[in-house]
Design a protein around this nucleic acid. Structure first.
Lengths: 152, 152
DNA sequence: TCTTGTTGTAATGTCAATCATTACAATGCT
DNA sequence: AGCATTGTAATGATTGACATTACAACAAGA
């Protein structure tokens, strides 16, 4: 299985807030337009990001703002916020290995630390990338677009 | 989403082959007993492992053997064999970001290298763990069981 | 205070993947 | 030939993802 597109959507949302926030009111409809994803899905993600304290969403009036400097928000923060992985466990284990088999009743002992190492490697890399890195590249690509505005 | 239990099942299967292969004929029914998973599912996984050249399965007569020394089979080999991740892409991207939005039409450029880094970190760690490592721990736990055979 | 634009959320539906299960032809020993 | 086993198709239950409709709650401006 793949990690839910909620993750890439969430990052997309942050880029939009940063790029357009000063010029436009960034609503769920606005974001739905940019991502081409249903506004209700966007609101669900916004609600998760809000729950993690990463953004603030204005009820009634609408609009979204980021609560922290971008270099203080990592991919791991976002990944946790949008709950890409059930119970924080990357690997799905077969539920009931046989207690009658020596291998079956020890398979968790044998594998858990190794699976944890793999999961930690993923999480560590996620934690090494911040939205400031993303912003930097975003600005680079948007600038190049302005230099060659009609290139395609 | 989580990585399919096919992965942990496949490792479990290897441990069984190594532990019991000299004493028993390791059939899909035998493995179904140890894993507590339907034999047809086991056969599907065996077929994928066979397709990757990691094991051989005897038609008709039944039984499974490993084709290589265990230190030459990594978790990454198994992970690839059982196709836990579609198209090899760990992150599911939202399909059609808006071409009318500067962010929408650049989001792939902006994110792809970062997502690739994360995926590579996962794969590198998977590749650093071999079935020989698993065998070593398996023997340790099984030995401890024999020292305290009725412990629980 | 009424209107307007928006958020939050429930309800429903479609689709794809996982895993279980039944069934059976094909296979290769004995 | 008989037998245990593999390979595979078909069907079903369950779950998560994402889309969509609907509407109450909300905040601000007219």
């Amino acid at each position: 299985m793949q990690i839910s597109s909620r993750f890439t959507l969430a990052v997309h949302i942050f880029v939009c807030i940063d790029t357009f926030g000063s010029e436009y009111k960034v609503t769920s409809d606005f974001l739905a337009g940019s991502t081409n994803v249903n506004p209700v899905i966007i609101r669900k993600i916004l609600s998760q990001l809000k729950g993690a304290g990463l953004i603030e969403v204005a009820r009634g009036t609408g609009g979204t703002t980021v609560t922290r400097p971008l270099d203080k928000i990592t991919f791991f923060d976002i990944y946790n916020a949008v709950e890409c992985v059930e119970r924080g466990e990357l690997f799905h284990f077969h539920e009931n290995p046989s207690a009658n088999c020596p291998v079956g009743r020890n398979i968790h002992h044998i594998l858990d630390d190794k699976l944890f190492r793999v999961q930690s490697a993923l999480e560590k890399e996620l934690d090494s990338i911040t939205l400031a890195d993303v912003k930097q590249d975003a600005e680079k690509y948007l600038r190049e677009e302005n230099i060659y505005p009609n290139a395609f």
